[in-house]
């Protein structure tokens, strides 16, 4: 079951095609990474999902229903460039944004107080936003995004501008919300965060969906059969000399007590190991090196 499905979504601005026939599906309960370089069309795509704009063609389903006017109340969106009304008090502001999402006054107040208590910031209620630091404002922004318990949470670069402590705090909350059933789309160009947090990804480049899938599957698909071999002692002369006769494998890199070896396919790994043992290499470690998302990303973007 998917919380969100996009089918052949297209959006043009003037002569520029911002979203070019994009399809993907976000499984319910997952944390989904939407990756892509700046200007790839991520924001345009998100704006379609959040009903800020409409797709020129193609279809979007949220939780099995075609996207409609009732859906904004079920989505929480934190844009990359974010802000609040500077002159408004924290409490008034949060109440306003929560009520715009369709919550009743009472409900909004109750939920908000829970969140403020959770972050230990109940005394901010009567403060003006401009009196808060940037990091504090981000917390308020986060609360405004999640207070209505959205089914789908869309976070565009949620950690930008946060110090590590606050970033961790928000990250824990994201996990918590995910555990409680919210599906999360996480848009970023910071790959290390994606690898850490996301289960699924889509890579967007120049408006197109270049690849989608489970992170583990994508890595498998893009692996280059690289193995790292740790050894001790001295390498046999043949290997040390870069034995060209050995067509079965290729030594990509030599480090102190470590070799980086590329083989033809997965099946060849045993043969490689046997060969090395035969040659009298004293092996201490043997493991496959999977590409990082960063490498995949760069490889895909650069063609």
């Amino acid at each position: 079951m998917n919380i969100l499905t996009l089918e052949n979504v297209v959006k043009n601005y003037d002569k520029h095609c911002a979203v070019d026939n994009v399809s993907f599906a976000v499984p319910k309960g997952s944390i989904y990474g939407l990756l892509g370089p700046n200007g790839a069309g991520k924001t345009s795509l998100i704006r379609i999902i959040t009903t800020i704009t409409r797709a020129d063609s193609g279809e979007v389903w949220l939780d099995g229903e075609k996207l409609n006017a009732g859906h904004p109340a079920e989505i929480g969106y934190m844009p990359e460039e974010r802000g609040l009304y500077k002159k408004m008090k924290v409490g008034e502001q949060l109440m306003y944004l929560a009520q715009l999402k369709g919550m009743s006054k009472k409900e909004a107040k109750k939920n908000l107080m829970e969140w403020l208590e959770k972050f230990g910031i109940t005394d901010w209620w009567g403060k003006k936003v401009e009196e808060l630091s940037k990091g504090m404002q981000q917390k308020i922004q986060f609360i405004a995004t999640v207070v209505h318990r959205p089914k789908l949470l869309i976070l565009d670069e949620p950690f930008s501008g946060l110090d590590p402590i606050n970033a961790n705090l928000i990250k824990d909350e994201i996990y918590q919300l995910n555990k409680e059933g919210s599906s999360i789309i996480f848009s970023t160009h910071r790959m290390e965060q994606v690898e850490e947090i996301c289960e699924y990804i889509s890579l967007i480049n120049q408006g197109k969906n270049v690849l989608s899938g489970k992170v583990a599957d994508v890595k498998q698909d893009f692996k280059q059969h690289l193995f790292s071999i740790g050894y001790s002692g001295v390498l046999p002369a043949e290997l040390a000399m870069q034995d060209a006769a050995n067509a079965n494998f290729e030594i990509v890199e030599r480090k102190e007590q470590e070799l980086l070896v590329k083989i033809e396919n997965d099946e060849a790994s045993n043969a490689l190991l046997q060969y090395l043992i035969q040659k009298g290499v004293h092996i201490r470690a043997f493991h496959e090196i999977l590409p990082t998302l960063n490498e995949i990303f760069i490889r895909q973007v650069n063609g």
Binding site: P72, P79, E81, G83, L100, K101
Partner: peptide, 12 residues
């Protein structure tokens, strides 16, 4: 300029 507008128009 505040960028609050994008948050608001994701609701209205």
């Amino acid at each position: 300029m505040n960028r609050i507008v994008e948050v608001v128009i994701s609701s209205v």
